[in-house]
């Protein structure tokens, strides 16, 4: 297992266990963890999985995944359809909890805290790990209300107008929508909707952003806008992105994880290394299109 190398670099940051909350409605997050200083340390590990197995009923979707995702970098996940990339992503913010038959074994830590511990509140966890889905899914509300959604549910309503504007600017959407914030989000084009979903995710200032094929439903221009955006985001956020597009992974990511059929992680390394000189023959075959 080549993926083991990364795990050794882990500096477990046990800076807080504020995922643990006694009030599930409010998600007792304290916002005073000093992220600025962490950013200086470069490639500290934020998310780390060890021996992670995931089952849907009887079928196993992921086997023995060991993976360490570095902070403030873009980590790409590639692999053939059905190999468990989305499943892994959903494990990180416990969206798998919403699937009744899904069962997770092993450990997955976020900032040193196992997110599957019984005292972790998944709602509080998801407030720190944002997610963007494969198909744009804005709410049938106004553009403004979409971006403000997370702020409202998390009671972060001071300076809401400013935060909305800042998020839309970061998502490179402000210029297109600034004069029609009260229009329905469903009137936007697909690419604009996806950028709106990104704005919605970053409005609440998460620490990690998970993206599941965010550009798969978009045309090349919208795709390249999203790619620029992702590179931009990586200066502030840790980004984990699933993609079927090799060039995309090569262009925007710092690290790449290759999953292959059967739910195993075959190789995890620097993106350059994976694309130029992969260890495993199967990965090379997959990347060059001989297989998968």
């Amino acid at each position: 297992m080549t993926s083991q190398d990364m795990a050794s670099e882990t500096e477990a940051e046990t800076d807080d266990d504020s995922l643990v909350t006694t009030d599930p409605g409010k998600g007792g997050l304290d916002e005073n963890d000093d992220r600025g200083s962490v950013a200086q340390t470069g490639a500290g590990t934020v998310i780390e999985s060890r021996d992670l197995d995931v089952f849907y009923g009887e079928t196993q979707a992921l086997q023995n995944i060991d993976l360490a995702i570095p902070e403030n970098q873009v980590t790409a996940m590639i692999g053939p359809s059905g190999c468990g990339k989305s499943t892994f992503l959903r494990c990180i913010n416990r969206m798998n909890d919403l699937i009744d038959i899904a069962r997770v074994e092993g450990s997955l830590t976020f900032k040193g805290k196992n997110v599957y511990d019984t005292d972790v509140d998944p709602v509080a966890l998801r407030r720190r790990i944002g997610m963007v889905f494969q198909h744009p899914n804005p709410f049938p509300k106004s553009i403004y209300d979409n971006v403000a959604y997370g702020l409202r549910i998390q009671d972060k309503t001071e300076n809401m107008d400013e935060v909305v504007e800042r998020s839309l600017k970061k998502a490179a959407l402000w210029d297109e929508v600034s004069d029609r914030l009260d229009d329905s989000a469903l009137d936007l084009s697909g690419g604009q909707q996806q950028r709106l979903c990104i704005a919605r995710a970053i409005a609440v200032d998460p620490e990690v952003i998970l993206m599941d094929e965010p550009a798969s439903a978009l045309d090349p221009i919208a795709t390249s806008q999203i790619e620029d955006l992702i590179e931009e985001l990586a200066t502030e956020y840790t980004v984990v992105i699933v993609t079927h597009n090799m060039q995309q992974a090569a262009r925007i990511s710092d690290k790449t994880a290759v999953f292959l059929t059967g739910g195993e992680l075959v190789e995890f390394d620097d993106t350059d290394k994976i694309f130029e000189n992969p260890e495993s023959q199967r990965v090379e075959d997959y990347i060059t299109g001989k297989f998968g």
């Binding site: 599930p24 409605g25 998600g27 913010n93 969206m95 919403l98 709602v123 509080a124 966890l125 998801r126 407030r127 720190r128 944002g130 997610m131 889905f133 198909h135 899914n137 804005p138 709410f139 049938p140 959604y149 997370g150 549910i153 998390q154 979903c197 919605r200 995710a201 609440v204």
Partner: peptide, 14 residues
């Protein structure tokens, strides 16, 4: 649509 529910849960909604 369940995608809307997912969007909401993904934002950390109860």
């Amino acid at each position: 649509p369940s995608s809307l529910r997912q969007a909401s849960y993904g934002m950390g909604a109860t």
